[in-house]
Design a protein around this nucleic acid. Sequence first.
DNA 1: GGTTGAACTGAACGGGTGTTCAGATAGCTT
DNA 2: AAGCTATCTGAACACCCGTTCAGTTCAACC
Lengths: 196, 196
Amino acid sequence: MARKRGSHADITGPRVRAAALRLFARDGYAAVSMRRIAAEVGVQAGALYLYTPDKQALLFDLMQGHMEDLLAAWGAESQGGDAPARLDRFARFHVRFHLDRPEAVFIAFMELRSLTPGNFAAIAALRGRYEAALEGILREGVAAGAFTVPDTRLAAMALIAMLTGVTTWYREGGRLARAEVEGIYADMARRAVGAG
Amino acid sequence: MARKRGSHADITGPRVRAAALRLFARDGYAAVSMRRIAAEVGVQAGALYLYTPDKQALLFDLMQGHMEDLLAAWGAESQGGDAPARLDRFARFHVRFHLDRPEAVFIAFMELRSLTPGNFAAIAALRGRYEAALEGILREGVAAGAFTVPDTRLAAMALIAMLTGVTTWYREGGRLARAEVEGIYADMARRAVGAG
DNA sequence: GGTTGAACTGAACGGGTGTTCAGATAGCTT
DNA sequence: AAGCTATCTGAACACCCGTTCAGTTCAACC
């Protein structure tokens, strides 16, 4: 047999990435085989190589796309306001963004070690830009006397870890609504840096 | 060939666990082969099965041991004091304990999905007890009017995520000493829950 | 100093891995 | 209606996987 009915690159390509995202998030990059991804898409393993040069590139593209989405989304939302206002927006944005794409977040965090050195460096650089964005807000707040933090780098890492952690326990339809969760995290972040 | 010179179960057993810990933490459970672990110990793959029934049990034992160590260590340190004092001790303890065993922490956090359902439930239960310990402190503090937290469960998860995050960036011999890091994290935790 | 048994080897088992590629087909273009 | 090409199959490649086990060797005991 050969070409399937109604098959199309525009359809299969995204389906390959979606299947890879789901499976990498659930079982981990190393534990997922190309055959498994292909089965999810309803195709033979060889067909995947029409859409990715290899398995590593599939992972890298997912992670890079996620980090670029993250930076672009924050870039669109970050402008204006003083440090406390921007920290509040950052916290809410971070929680919202991460709750919207738990699988991509999970992969971006867990599969760094599955990247080849070159790919790792590229993702680490993108991540560094995001961390620097938060640290910039903290430095600005410290300079303006609005925040009390002995070390802005440490505080930025601590806040990001705290906020990202929401994905480990939050379940849709649970006790708390998204908006409440956003608000509570933003409050904790604000207080953690000593803002009134 | 067969038995090595000076070989002994008392020596090889711990070496197997140490090698597995190191490799699982670095490359991930699924990405590490039994042959790789064996090579690290200086033994053939078959010999590993004198020390573990299978690969899954090797992972489970490492994780269970870590969680039990964690609970026992906190149990020995938790007694006495009011809620703010206990929260301070918890934060410092958590940071210190995690900085002492970054590899075990990494595995306990990352490899939950590599566990069989039964083993997962066992580890999740241990983890739940630890989270409950912190939540207990928070509830006590709220009842005494010392903390302001709208949701103790959320706050407990947020604090643990924040504190555990120290392992992702802290490097020995870096800019900050351990004691400083402990103190800063404890301050952030205290303020995050609205304690004076 | 001979015997025993714990510790380990090395080969094998069936099956899975990422990746390649010649060949087949479905749908678009002309 | 014919031809073309993007899309996909199915088999094969060389290699790695976790696990088992008969056989070998060394250290400790009697």
